[in-house]
């Protein structure tokens, strides 16, 4: 029984990291007022780049760096369209998602299924010896530990630093921020690109650690789920963890049922659950919002900024 719980918990964490990293990146972009629907594409491109560099014999750090750079480049494209050209952010994000998907499918065709780097679980000394908890939390891949660090870091930057202050200012009230002299454009660019970096890293996690190797559309909608989880998190990194764990938990259940052969719930229902749950979460958030509890959505989200004159 305990073993089952440990197994499920461990896989829950494993399965949630991709969504989590992408969601934290998206929180930064949206906090600054940029809706980035291209996360799925950025994750895919990141995953492919990481896998390809690994396959070519590059060291893991280079693979990670490459994946993040690929995500950043696509994010830069989105930033250029939605900030500089003031294009419709929905369409620009969709275009990025399609483009990223296409690029990864096209360029990744030759290396489907081949595995270069496999970031195996790396038990942390001492910590992993703690009963139950050690096995669940500290017998994971290095990227999981990195995510452990990124969560508090992101929250700290966003809520306890001057940079975070500026980011929130730009996303909530770009006009006021501009009037006191904050560079709205620069901050939005930085946040969008940071979002792309984390999406790329999330992709790398999938292709280097979670299910090593490149597979077409291997994100299977995790980028979109990440965007929904951002709404669920009310734009706070800690609550995004909760959302990501929900997603990871459902995935872990699938593994558990598969591994044990128990089928309490039919597999195809389990497969659907992450998506349905995400929709349910969206309804819940909107319902709470309607009831007067204002979801703290950045007020300038999706609104291009332009100072006339």
């Amino acid at each position: 029984m305990i073993d089952d719980i440990v197994f499920i918990s461990q896989i829950t964490i494993k399965s949630s990291i991709g969504v989590l990293l992408a969601a934290i990146g998206e929180i930064f972009a949206e906090r600054s007022g940029i809706l980035n629907l291209g996360v799925e594409g950025m994750m895919l491109v990141g995953a492919l780049t990481g896998a390809a560099i690994g396959l070519a014999g590059g060291p893991p750090l280079l693979a990670l760096g490459g994946g993040m750079l690929a995500g950043a480049l696509l994010a830069m494209l989105h930033a250029f369209f939605s900030i500089t050209l003031r294009a419709d952010q929905t369409l620009s994000g969709l275009a990025i998602a399609i483009l990223g998907g296409g690029l990864s499918n096209f360029l990744g065709r030759p290396i489907i299924g081949e595995v270069g780097i496999r970031l195996k679980a790396f038990p942390l000394p001492y910590l992993s010896d703690i009963p139950v908890i050690g096995e669940i939390f500290f017998n994971q891949s290095v990227l999981v530990y990195l995510a452990y660090l990124i969560i508090p870091f992101a929250s700290y930057v966003l809520f306890h630093t001057r940079t975070g202050l500026k980011i929130r200012a730009v996303g909530d009230d770009a006009v006021s921020a501009d009037v006191i002299g904050i560079n709205v454009t620069a901050i939005r660019y930085c946040c969008t690109i940071f979002g792309g970096i984390l999406a790329g890293l999330g992709g790398c996690y999938l292709s280097l650690a979670y299910t090593p190797g490149w597979k077409e559309n291997m994100t299977a909608g995790q980028g979109w789920i990440a965007i929904a989880m951002v709404i669920f998190s009310l734009w706070s990194p800690y609550r995004a963890v909760l959302g990501a764990l929900l997603f990871g938990g459902l995935t872990a259940l699938q593994f558990f049922f598969q591994a044990t052969g128990i089928e309490v719930i039919p597999v195809y229902i389990l497969l659907m659950l992450p998506y349905l749950l995400t929709i349910g979460v969206l309804i819940l958030v909107m319902h709470l919002k309607k009831g007067g509890k204002d979801g703290k959505s950045p007020r300038c989200l999706g609104v291009p900024f332009h100072r006339e004159g």
Partner: peptide, 24 residues
């Protein structure tokens, strides 16, 4: 001081003023 006050509602007064100083 604009007619539509230009304070960022989600930040505190001190934070608003800090950001203005920072930008200068």
């Amino acid at each position: 001081v604009y007619q539509r006050f230009m304070l960022m509602d989600t930040l505190t007064v001190a934070e608003n003023i800090l950001l203005a100083a920072d930008a200068c």
